[in-house]
């Protein structure tokens, strides 16, 4: 299956992937409205690696594991792996117990900070639009949608 891969040598840590991730998952699909009126947690984590020479970064989102621990830990059946291999979360079923957060070894499932909708936030590969918003808007091509086999 295709997943988003982040290339450290190109990632600038600029944070645009977060901006576009939030917007893509907003109701309004408008950046400014998303930030002003909706409290969305991006499904991407940007990590910084401190090395003596220079900071490097990488963006991280759900790895859509072949054998996903989050699916196993989910108490409500909200988390599942679909036929295409995408690990999805059914918002309506999710009760926000965070069992998935407890077991995700990548730390790629996030608690949604919006307290009203106590659910989690994770990458769905923007399956509705085709190309993930983070990949589409990465200014330095650090995020690529690639086939697993191609990467290996």
């Amino acid at each position: 299956m295709k997943k988003v891969y982040a290339f450290e040598k190109n990632c600038l840590g600029c944070g645009l992937c977060e901006v576009y991730c939030k917007t893509a998952h907003s109701k309004s699909k408008d950046i400014i409205k998303t930030y002003r009126k909706e409290n969305i947690t991006s499904a991407i984590v940007i990590e910084e690696i401190l090395s003596p020479k220079a900071k490097t970064y990488f963006a991280l989102q759900c790895r859509h594991c072949a054998d996903p621990k989050c699916v196993k830990a989910c108490i409500s059946g909200a988390m599942y792996k679909d036929q295409n291999g995408i690990v999805k979360n059914i918002k309506e079923k999710c009760v926000g117990c965070l069992s998935c957060v407890l077991v995700c070894p990548f730390g790629a499932v996030k608690r949604n900070k919006d307290k009203e909708r106590k659910i989690i936030s994770k990458c769905d590969l923007c399956i509705e639009t085709g190309t993930p918003a983070c990949v589409e808007n990465c200014p330095n091509n650090a995020l690529k949608l690639m086939d697993e086999e191609e990467v290996k």
Partner: peptide, 8 residues
Amino acid sequence: PDRAGIYT
């Protein structure tokens, strides 16, 4: 809770 799974 953030990133607890890494500790796990």
